Simulated scan of single mutants.
Amino acid sequence: MDRADNALIIGAGAGLSAALARKLAAAGWDVALAARDTAKLAGLAAETRGSLHACDAADVPGVAALFADLEAAGRAPSLLVYNPSFRVRGPITELDPEEVRRTLEVCAFGAFLAAQQAARRMLAAGRGSIFFTGASAGVKGFPQSAPFAMGKFALRGLAESLARELHPRNIHVCHFVIDGGIASSRRVAAPGSDSLLDPNAIADSYLHVLAQPRSAWSSEIALRPWVETF
């Protein structure tokens, strides 16, 4: 980057969010990390010189306060990455309605709240980027996973609608379909198989999209390991 910008990652954790935070910080971005539990992010915040913000992504006043606090500090985000996820699995006849509600709140309603707050500030600034982390479930529903499919389909619809609304206003909206498992300390691919997505490789794709000229913006990009079936 030729100048410092402000990034906000909501739903920050140890995987993709951490990889993205490191790469943004290395590129000169000021990084704010928001999550319900910030204690687990202390090391990442120190490493990226980022700030920590406790926030429930589906809480209306909490999300509004998060953006207001950043704006008051002169750090209104020019990049928002919405990365929270929540899921409940089971047969349709046995699902807990409150758990289903929570899935929809985190996957979709929280994305709306964050995007609304970000868009207000980005429209005033005349620029910005809003990135949503989706999943395979946003393009194909799996058995006994109806709540997650509902939430991720809604997220994809939100992203598509906002891209059409905000792209002409110089705000780049992109939905990332993470179509496959992400490697982690608990999920390790067999040596040489590349059967899991490397979080650093995913983060590279986010930064590539971030750097796209506006004459050729992506509104959706699907990422999957080369061995993943379509």
Rank of each mutant, 00 (worst) to 15 (best):
A35C: 08
R169N: 09
R89L: 15
D5F: 12
A146D: 06
P91E: 13
S78T: 14
F132M: 10
A14G: 11
P199W: 01
E165H: 07
G74F: 10
F142M: 13
P143Y: 10
T103P: 07
G181I: 06
A4S: 15
P191V: 12
G128L: 00
E94H: 11
F131S: 00
N83C: 14
A4C: 13
S193N: 02
G128T: 09
L16P: 00
V139N: 09
D198R: 05
F153A: 08
A7T: 02
H175F: 15
D37G: 12
L80C: 05
L8P: 01
H167N: 10
L16N: 00
V88I: 13
V63T: 06
W29N: 02
R187T: 13
I182K: 01
A65I: 03
F153L: 08
L162F: 13
V188I: 15
P147K: 04
R120M: 12
S195P: 06
V88T: 15
A125D: 08
L223R: 00
F109C: 00
A118S: 13
G15L: 05
P225I: 00
R22H: 04
T48W: 03
F131N: 02
S218K: 14
K152E: 02
S215W: 09
Y82V: 04
A114M: 09
L166K: 03
P225H: 10
S145R: 15
M150T: 13
R214G: 08
I9D: 01
L66T: 00
N6I: 04
R127L: 08
T229E: 15
D30W: 08
A45V: 06
A190F: 11
A25S: 15
D59N: 12
A58N: 10
G15S: 13
E71V: 00
A203V: 03
T103I: 03
H175N: 12
G11P: 01
R214F: 15
R127M: 12
S78N: 09
L113A: 02
A26E: 11
I178E: 01
Q116K: 14
D96G: 05
L95W: 09
V209D: 01
G11M: 02
E71A: 14
A135M: 06
A65E: 12
H208R: 14
L33V: 09
V173S: 01
Q212E: 13
